[in-house]
Nucleic acid binder design. Structure first.
Lengths: 351, 351
DNA sequence: GTGAAAGCGCTAACAG
DNA sequence: CTGTTAGCGCTTTCAC
């Protein structure tokens, strides 16, 4: 009667296992395992024999089986709300880089901005027993986040959340808005209007930042905001609205680059020159802003840093070095291009 | 002496298992398994009891364990060469949508265009025992692809490969280039130049398509190509080169949108109007092309379709319905915007 | 250094 | 319908 360890019937079909390697190298199963995990205490001769057997068999360790026994996967789940937005490319890049250093592999997933799909994506990652979860600008309800927290450490990126269980890393939208407004003010602008981002991520904080900065600069009386949203058309319509004002604003701070581009178009159509007549500042410093035809001054968020910090938060939790929430805020910078310039002298009347 | 099934010491710490659910619902382990898998032949009463126990325990099936015994993961690995390029957002979207229909989950990974990292990313997916692999525009060597084929079905997206073991789905660059050239010709252009994409993906085929179309239209004598690459600066330099020609070309077909944008800038600097003096066509129809300030006529590839087809190829292989390579080519279309217009009459001299 | 044994959480096969 | 049994491929422990 064959023993279990001797039974291996249709090895032909299936992939080689650690046992096949052991037999080929004429050593024990445990020894192979030790070599794979890089433990020491294995003779050079045996190590080489194992290495060679692995090579010949085209053996690949089954991390599924390993995870099952170790009860950890060394995998991180990352749910990205929008893979089409190049900003998240930076975030992913930051996560991956740091994860590689720390010996984790990263599994991405997306729900394409649809809350239900995002929830399914998160659930899917959790069923895979990832050791931690990074949610990049998720659109799901806070309760979903809390549910996830009960299973593994969670960090939320670029999203205001009232969920208290998770860590978070966000861009400092308040500071970013200040940068934009102060830049305009330093160029002599006093009538600085704001195109509001509506429900877009961070838009409310950016508006607050605008208001606070205007106040601080003694320009509270000139505050002017108009609803635009995060879309090009939103920015276009908002700018047309602004053009009805008198006196005309001489600078516009748009909630993001895309809406700034819409605004630029509206200005051009109205026969106004940028920055001669009106300066425009965007937010995000996407690749769009850098295009020569657009050359938009914009606030830059550091996606890679946000990703890296998120990865570090998760790691601390997994390692058990911390169990209280950590909330990081990353400072943005201003990238000045040619869409902003000195305020026109005596233009468009005075107030 | 307790039996194994009765032993469950520190259930406190670890996550609930199927056994915990069974005990709570006062049914057998197998019954729970049947409910989870949606088998029928379970009484409504029991089904409900199980459902409730799952709810109360916040139980989540461990797909790791399931995969181990089923020897299939129902996971697909997707290696994306460049997550920053919005085009791949479309591809991913197509893959995900179809995968969801077919009951697969998708794991993304990237190597950030670095061959070594991409190889590691692929290996990582393979160790996870994904059931199939989709490689989107991979930069790795063909031998890596062949190695992967030995483990699971592989489909390569948007990349010329001589690897014969895998399926492939590509954009029809030949047809796309024809569309661009024919569009210009139909507007009366005869001196149509091409900014070459160099080593960029598909660039060689686009050039061939350009040459073939010029030939077909009887414009072989007017063929003019200049090396530009896929970058904005490459397009800019290439266009400056073209501007030294006499007679000047009246239309430029650039290898991609980004280089077309560089070319537009060069034309503008030279005081030439688009499309009044020179028409420009791009390739990819990225979001850049649609910007009002750019409004670039461009060849559109359907990323989502490419992803969806890739998913279907993999699925056929996994299901064992096919074992011979399948090579799909997706037809592009032309999106006409304001960067192209009628050829100037008698402009820039005749040949 | 080696080899045996137990078991991670689950499914599958089968006898009741 | 239920309960038992036997693994999936690996790590871990422990006696040799």
């Amino acid at each position: 009667m064959p023993r279990r360890t001797d039974v291996k019937p249709h090895q032909s079909q299936s992939e080689p296992t650690i046992l096949d390697v052991a037999r080929k190298a004429r050593v024990s199963k445990s020894l192979v395992s030790m070599v794979i995990r890089g433990e020491d205490g294995v003779s050079a001769k045996n190590r080489e024999a194992v290495r060679q057997a692995i090579e010949e068999l085209n053996y690949r360790p089954n991390v599924i089986a390993r995870s099952l026994v170790q009860r950890r996967t060394r995998m991180l789940g990352v749910m990205i709300s929008d893979l089409r937005n190049p900003f998240f490319g930076d975030v992913v890049s930051g996560i991956q880089m740091r994860a590689a250093d720390l010996g984790y592999r990263v599994l991405f997933n997306t729900g394409d901005r649809v809350p239900n799909l995002e929830e399914a994506a998160i659930e899917s990652l959790l069923e895979l027993r990832v050791d931690g979860l990074i949610l990049a600008a998720p659109r799901v309800d806070d309760t979903i986040i809390e549910r996830a927290c009960r299973a593994v450490p969670v960090v939320v990126l670029n999203r205001d959340t009232s969920a208290t269980c998770s860590d978070s890393v966000t861009n400092d939208n308040l500071a970013g808005a200040s940068l934009a407004v102060e830049h305009c003010a330093s160029l002599g602008h006093t009538r600085i209007a704001h195109i509001d981002g509506g429900t877009g991520a961070g838009a409310n904080v950016r508006r607050e930042g605008y208001l606070a900065a205007m106040q601080r600069l003694g320009l509270a009386a000139n505050v002017l905001t108009v609803e635009g949203g995060f879309t090009e058309n939103g920015g276009y319509q908002a700018a047309r609205e602004l053009l009805k004002q008198f006196p005309l604003p001489t600078a516009i701070f748009a909630a993001n680059d895309v809406s700034a581009i819409g605004a630029l178009k509206a200005l051009e159509e109205a026969g106004l020159r940028t920055p001669g007549d009106v300066s425009v500042v965007g937010y995000d410093n996407t690749s769009l802003a850098a295009l020569p035809q657009i050359s938009l001054t914009s606030v830059q968020q550091f996606g890679a840093d946000i990703g890296r910090l998120g990865m570090e938060c998760i790691f601390e939790r997994i390692e058990g070095r911390r169990s209280t929430p950590r909330h990081e805020v990353v400072a943005p910078t201003l990238v000045v291009r040619t869409s902003t310039g000195p305020a026109p002298v005596g233009a468009h009347g005075h107030r």
